[in-house]
Design a protein around this nucleic acid. Structure first.
Length: 253
DNA sequence: AGTGTCGCCTGAATGC
DNA sequence: TGCATTCAGGCGACAC
């Protein structure tokens, strides 16, 4: 099938948050999001290719290699965007800082959380607070920072914001180091699996003890899960306890 | 403007 | 075995 990008040269590939941007020698760039189950795999020139189920797009490169986009759930998308303007358009105009950049500081995070009455876990999934955090890493970072996921976002102290920014960076760096998290679909471009799922502290570990658990595990029941805005959160109620309830009672008087 | 709910789509796991 | 239900790395449209 012909498309607008036929014959274009891919000049560079960028990433912002969970989006990839393929810059070309034309007016338009290709914006790509993998959704939940999207993946790219690279097949070298001469390597036989048979279309597999859920292969939706195949890029045939000038050197004969194939880059295949496979996406079982089809939540991913590719759209042409203006190469000159995409950064000032949705969703990038309002997107939060890159968590591994120097723009991501505790004061910057506090500023973006200031007006949010929503729980901190829900706020972390909002890409306009910080870019690139998904459901796994939100739970993992909050555990590492020892912050209750139910705590209102605006209620974070300076100390908590500091702990959270470093926890987010630490979790992401370790996850990248381990090659990402393969629950079902995630693969590298060469088909390799990620290994960070073996290092989760709380995610998908309901009723297990958290790392370094000091409480009476039998009586506490270990890690708990709850639903927040339709997404599952995992946390340790003992390691991540906060005093909101006591404070609320005081406010009411 | 911030917030919650719903739909998109398929596959795997679970329950009956 | 078969069928229905539930849930899953995300996001955008929509209503309030």
């Amino acid at each position: 099938m012909k498309c607008d990008f036929d014959g274009r040269i891919i000049k560079s590939i960028q990433r912002r948050g969970k989006y990839m941007i393929f810059n070309t020698n034309g007016e338009q760039a290709l914006l790509v999001h993998l959704g939940m189950s999207g993946r790219f795999t690279v097949h070298a020139k001469g390597q036989e290719y048979h279309r597999a189920e859920h292969d939706h797009v195949v890029f045939i490169l000038g050197n004969g290699a194939r880059v295949v986009y496979n996406d079982a759930r089809r939540f991913g998308f590719m759209i042409p965007v203006s190469q000159a303007n995409w950064q000032t358009e949705a969703p990038f105009a309002s997107m939060g800082p890159e968590p591994l950049s120097e723009d991501f500081t505790a004061p910057a995070l506090l500023k973006r959380l200031k007006a949010r009455r929503t729980p901190i876990k829900v706020a972390l999934l909002d890409q306009s607070v910080v870019a690139g955090i998904g459901n796994i890493y939100a739970s993992e970072a909050l555990f590492e920072a020892r912050i209750d996921p139910r705590k209102p976002a605006f209620d974070l102290s300076v100390k908590e914001a500091e702990a959270l920014t470093s926890a987010i960076q630490s979790v992401l760096l370790r996850a990248i180091e381990a090659g990402g998290s393969t629950l079902k679909d995630y693969r590298h471009a060469d088909g390799a699996l990620g290994y960070f799922q073996h290092h989760f502290a709380v995610y998908d570990r309901e009723k297990e003890p958290c790392p370094g658990c000091l409480c009476d595990f039998i009586s506490t029941g270990g890690i708990q899960r709850l639903a927040q805005s339709g997404r599952t959160t995992y946390f340790c109620p003992h390691m991540q306890a906060h005093k909101m309830i006591a404070l609320k009672k005081r406010e009411k008087r």
